[in-house]
Design a protein around this nucleic acid. Structure first.
Lengths: 233, 233
DNA sequence: TGTACATCAGTGAACGCGCGTTCACTGATGTAC
DNA sequence: TGTACATCAGTGAACGCGCGTTCACTGATGTAC
């Protein structure tokens, strides 16, 4: 279908024929580069074409307009996000709490390692209801967190009232997103911190779970009487 | 110093003399309007001038460039934010936990009611270290949250290890910012929710505080054995 | 109180630029026979 | 295997537009005397 798949990682400007062969992909890549450098607003259609080494009219063969390209990126971002979260959750292995925290860390890792995807997903200002496919992808990603919360809620100690899984999922999402936005991004906008974003999130989640009545002592709290914020130094 | 202070709330286009009299203020207001409509990236210098009813060259008498105007807005936003949080905190009256939660609600209210300020403060992409005045204003606002956390930490029950106030402050900030960003903004980007952002945040903070060992039963938990997420229906 | 003058805060025309988008076109590719 | 032709995926020139920024300018204001 496409020719010279093996040579499209260079700038694409030199020694290619009349047909690019993989332009759609190249444009998406170029857009990701530009977004990660200048934010979703700084990205221009013409720039992406230039970066891919084609004329400014070429992108119109593949995307109706700029917004459609950004939506494509957000879409792909949510799919990748979902996959990353699914892997991290690993169906709750080895135990629910551990897996749950791994999901939080995966969230932060994604925001840091894929700032362009993250921007397109959460900061592009696309109206979420205007694009059902995109919204569905977003909801599939959230469903992972929600499923994890569901499993966790089912483990609630008998004495405690069982917390609503939906609420837990929203809380976890907000914690992760808050820390990622304020402290954990790859770009220069992050603020100085006395601890890593990962540690900050882990402590927050542990305190939260404890507040719900979950035992968070899987690593022998009794032996080392430290709070969730680490051992006293 | 300025003339016709009383008449600068209209569009400013009609029946004013050669001198605007209050252009700096009018430009800031125009920028706020534009940002709240189109986001910090959609705002243009020329547009602000047009909205204020002056020629495109006029703003240069008051701001070096576009970035300086946005920084001014962010600065003012942080000052207003600090004032709002200070009022909400009210030096911990009537009790620390109540006041603490009021701070969280004030945070959400600010994000919702002043989306333009909020955008300029947290999403404009200005390098935070490039502008010491701005960073100082930001830190003064955070200091309110931090001071509140400090007071709360001092109330830790004797049995519990005392949580680091800085960490608590960062957690609270991240919770508030996460919920505000995802669900609580005035614009169209917010998502559907089974409960209000305020309720969501209040529950989250209560669970968190309980996880730290604070008694959160100031409204008679014993009498109504409900979780922090409300009474069972 | 009046006048001369420095300063301030605007004007408006012009510039170069890059963007998004369109158009008729053309080279390359795939396929039917 | 070769040829004719439809379709695909680009070109490149052009357009109108709005932006940021500059410049010499000028009307309004405030102040010294």
């Amino acid at each position: 279908m496409s020719w010279r798949k093996d040579k499209d990682k260079d700038d694409g400007r030199a020694e290619r024929g009349y047909h690019h062969g993989n332009l759609k992909e190249a444009l998406l890549q170029a857009a990701l580069d530009l977004i990660s450098k200048k934010g979703p607003a700084g990205f221009t259609f013409a720039d992406a074409a230039r970066m891919a080494g084609v004329s400014p009219a070429a992108p119109y063969r593949h995307f109706r307009d700029r917004d459609e390209l950004i939506a494509s990126i957000a879409q792909r971002g949510f799919e990748q996000f979902e996959s990353v979260l699914t892997q991290a959750w690993d169906d709750g292995r080895p135990d629910t709490v551990t897996a749950f925290e791994r999901v939080g860390k995966a969230y932060l890792a994604f925001a840091r390692e894929e700032p362009a995807f993250y921007s397109a997903m959460f900061e592009s200002g696309l109206p979420p209801d205007a694009n059902p496919t995109l919204m569905a992808a977003s909801e599939r990603a959230f469903a992972i967190i929600r499923a994890a919360a569901e499993r966790l809620a089912a483990l609630a100690p008998p004495g405690q009232p069982r917390p609503p899984a939906m609420m837990m999922a929203l809380h976890i999402w907000a914690m992760s997103h808050g820390i990622a936005s304020l402290f954990g991004r790859g770009d220069a906008a992050r603020r100085k911190l006395p601890m890593s974003p990962e540690e900050l999130l882990e402590a927050e989640v542990l305190i939260y779970l404890r507040g719900l009545g979950f035992p968070t002592d899987r690593q022998a709290e009794a032996a080392a009487p430290a709070g969730p914020w680490g051992k006293p130094r």
